[in-house]
Design a protein around this nucleic acid. Structure first.
Length: 732
RNA sequence: GGGCGCUUAGCUCAGUUGGUAGAGCAACUCGUUUACACCGAGUAGGCCGUAGGUUCAAGUCCUACAGCGCCCACCA
């Protein structure tokens, strides 16, 4: 066969990949409905659905995103070729705090603060920024070859998702699961907002543990690392069995400490460790989460002495307005001057910081919105294994049970432990934020009246100024992208999702929250399988970070070596849940592989006789029959690997077969027959080789879609217009 | 304080259910005007972290230990 022009030399990804992606897109095959219309997918075949973890509109993609997209695209293409109704929904996440602080940083370079602009103007700037990021991200997803259904693209902050958010909020409020209360929250003084427990990072550090008494006649010494908060104490707690102090339980003492009049009750609480410090803890209900919980149990009064800016308040004049750090020194001095200090000791402490802003968390009492994870409610409708419709459940129980029963299965399974451990320690989720970018809390106030719903009941009603934690809307993602709360066909067909593929770093933030939302609101699991991939590190195994300057831009790699090569490098040598290193030498190697595949096909096509008809199968000698049996077995193995999410093994097997078996051996062993004068022998050889390359290309397509599709255009065995919708070599 | 992962060829890592070790890269030798130098043929290189145990058989299962890394946890 005469080779077409583009086939006369080596493979060049630069003039292949972009046009191919456009052709795929124009074909409509990324959309399962069109696949059915065009007859490449059976109307009643099994669905296979997945969402792309929505990418934050904070910036551009990095190699980690490229790896994620690659893994998902491989599984999606595999499912599509197996004839499933395959849906993969793209989307972006507004990433509230992250995006807002990014834009604030940009503005600060212009010398502008958000308060200078006001809410509306500021939000315009954020949206402009988000829009730009979005365009970049979308083009990056395309360049990697992601076969996403763009017609269903979603954004966590678009109109449809807003509807879902408000509906979810209202339903959970009506169930009593969302409540508004004054309680101690993680306050980030730098970001000027609350954050959830999961957004707080604990850093090891050293500090001083001060042991002292409030006053000379106070019966028990206490120990603390934060003396400045002690002006807000309302109790001292001891263990009920602690013989040293239990005669004082139930007594109240009026003391004057650091200029403040304190009324200290001595109470007994099981949570106190008699071994630590003095065994007596000064309880500061307003400025410590655990103290607040103790205070709740004992109905203790609360006294706030630190404000939202991390400064002292409600204290004597000398301290008023002082930063906590300076106040600590002042109070320590006061203790010493009054001869109350009994001991000081260097100890390890944890410093709690806000994940995004780096601000040091100040626990403060604030009126906020929460999701109650322990409250019992009636799950009206349930399709969850082991939980009947109408059962009394808590969110914690729901979250635990679907994983315990195996209805949601986690890969690799070791992450189940991590998940359960998180649930065991779970507290109510603070969902309100004081930032501007995000879903406004769907609650309106008029005087003492409150309305929860989709819109304001009237003109005089004022909406809550706060916004929702970004993970509230992300938690709805598996069904908000399918049209919920409408009962759409998509929702019926594609929910629960078949698979969720994401990084293990967001197991709590996102995976757990999706399970919470879906089980609660739909009475359904959000997905059947969860596959966790690891982090992508640099060649030396170092974490990729700006400060190390080892950032690798996937777009640069794609331009230089091609998306296929990058995809292969990101898959081979990795295993589920483990971090992987990306070495550019590997990418170069796989680029060679793409060229190799190209040349294998070129060689075979060159040797196809002009009047060739592949449907006329010749009689095959044992040698050629064996080649076919062998590839069939290979294909079964590879299929098995893909079915079990062992992508790295599938890729390796495919690579190895094509290069070192098909090219190095089979092609060489067939050359004599190809050049034979005997037409039958020639026919036998070429027919088998065409068959082998046809199967090979189909096996390789999910992993290296571009080069395989480019070759497929010239395949004599082609049944459909694109390889991406051809049948997988192994039937289910 | 609790939990998890890793430790296998010079480097980076695979090794699904236990059957006397694999890949890529690097190195070395040789070859090639005939699909591909983005090539081929070949060579060398490993008490599979340490110590025990289970088993006919262990890189693979169990126990302990060590080094490295990670996650969770507000001992005030």
């Amino acid at each position: 066969m005469d080779l077409p022009k583009e086939f006369q030399s080596g493979y060049d990804h630069t003039d292949t990949e972009e046009p191919l992606y456009s052709q795929w897109e124009e074909s409509g095959y990324f959309n399962p409905d069109i696949c059915i219309d065009k007859g490449v997918t059976e109307k009643d075949s099994d669905p296979f659905s997945m969402v792309l973890p929505p990418l934050n509109v904070t910036g551009v993609m990095h190699v980690g995103h490229a790896a994620m997209t690659t893994i998902e695209d491989i599984l999606i293409r595999f499912a599509r070729m197996r004839g499933k109704r395959t849906l993969w929904i793209p989307g972006t996440d507004h990433a509230a705090i992250a995006t807002q602080s990014k834009v604030e940083k940009i503005l600060s370079k212009e010398g502008v603060r958000r308060s200078d602009l006001g809410r509306e103007k500021f939000l315009e700037r954020v949206e402009e920024f988000a829009q730009n990021s979005h365009s970049t991200i979308v083009s990056q997803l395309r360049s990697i070859g992601g076969s996403l259904d763009w017609s269903r693209e979603a954004f966590t902050l678009d109109e449809k998702r807003e509807k879902a958010v408000r509906e979810a909020f209202k339903r959970m409020y009506d169930l009593g699961l969302i409540y508004r209360k004054d309680r101690v929250v993680n306050w980030d003084p730098k970001g000027q907002t609350t954050v959830s427990d999961d957004e707080v990072l604990h850093e090891e550090s050293t500090g001083t543990l001060y042991t002292f008494r409030y006053s000379k006649d106070f019966p028990v010494p206490i120990a603390t690392t934060r003396p400045e908060t002690k002006v807000g104490d309302t109790a001292v707690a001891i263990h009920p069995d602690d013989k040293r102090y239990n005669e004082y339980i139930g007594t109240t003492h009026e003391v004057e400490f650091a200029g403040s009049q304190l009324s200290i009750q001595i109470i007994a609480d099981e949570s106190i460790d008699p071994e630590y410090g003095t065994g007596a803890v000064g309880i500061t209900p307003a400025h410590s989460m655990t103290d607040w919980e103790i205070a709740e149990r004992h109905d203790l009064p609360l006294k706030q002495v630190i404000n939202e800016y991390g400064k002292m308040e409600n204290v004597i004049e000398e301290l008023e307005g002082m930063k906590t750090k300076d106040a600590r020194e002042w109070v320590v001095e006061w203790i010493k001057e009054n001869d109350l200090m009994e001991n000081t000791e260097e100890v390890n402490i944890n410093v709690s910081k806000a994940e995004r802003s780096g601000g040091i968390i100040e626990p403060l009492p604030k009126l906020q919105w929460f999701i109650d994870v322990n409250k019992e409610f009636t799950l009206e409708h349930s399709e969850i294994e082991g939980i009947d419709s109408g059962s009394k459940v808590t969110l914690k129980q729901l979250m635990a049970s679907v994983v315990k029963s195996g209805e949601v299965s986690i890969i690799p399974p070791r992450f189940e432990k991590v998940y359960f451990n998180w649930i065991d320690n779970l507290h109510d989720w603070c969902i309100s934020r004081q930032i501007w970018y995000g879903h406004r809390i769907p609650v309106w106030y008029k005087g003492d009246e409150m309305h929860v719903g989709h819109e304001a009941p009237g003109d005089e009603w004022k909406q809550d100024p706060d916004t929702l934690d970004t993970w509230f809307s992300s938690g709805l993602w598996t069904f908000s992208t399918l049209g919920w709360p409408e009962k759409t066909d998509d929702l019926l067909t594609y929910h629960p999702n078949s698979l969720l593929e994401t990084g293990y770093d967001i197991i709590f933030f996102w995976v757990a929250r999706m399970i919470l939302m879906s089980t609660c609101l739909l009475g359904e699991i959000p997905f059947k399988d969860v596959y966790f991939h690891g982090l992508v590190r640099d060649k030396k195994g170092q974490k990729i970070s700006k400060s190390l300057g080892n950032n690798i831009d996937p777009v640069d790699i794609i331009e230089e070596h091609g998306a296929d090569a990058l995809r292969m490098a990101l898959i081979i040598g990795t295993s589920p849940g483990n971090d992987a290193n990306l070495d550019l030498d590997d990418v170069r190697g796989y680029r060679k592989f793409a060229n190799k595949v190209w040349n294998i096909a070129r060689f075979i096509f060159m040797n196809i006789p002009d009047e060739y008809n592949h449907s006329e199968k010749p009689d095959l000698s044992v040698k050629y029959q064996n080649y076919l049996t062998e590839i069939q077995e290979k294909a079964e193995e590879i299929t098995e690997h893909l079915n079990n999410y062992r992508l790295h093994l599938a890729a390796e097997e495919t690579y190895h077969y094509i290069w070192h078996r098909l090219a190095d051996e089979i092609l060489e062993e067939s050359k004599d027959d190809l050049y034979s004068d005997n037409a039958d022998i020639q026919q036998e050889a070429i027919w088998t080789l065409v068959e082998l390359v046809s199967i090979s290309l189909r096996l390789l397509h999910p992993i290296m879609p571009f080069v395989t599709e480019a070759i497929w255009k010239h395949m004599p065995t082609k049944e459909r217009d694109f390889l991406m919708v051809e049948n997988w070599p192994i039937e289910e």
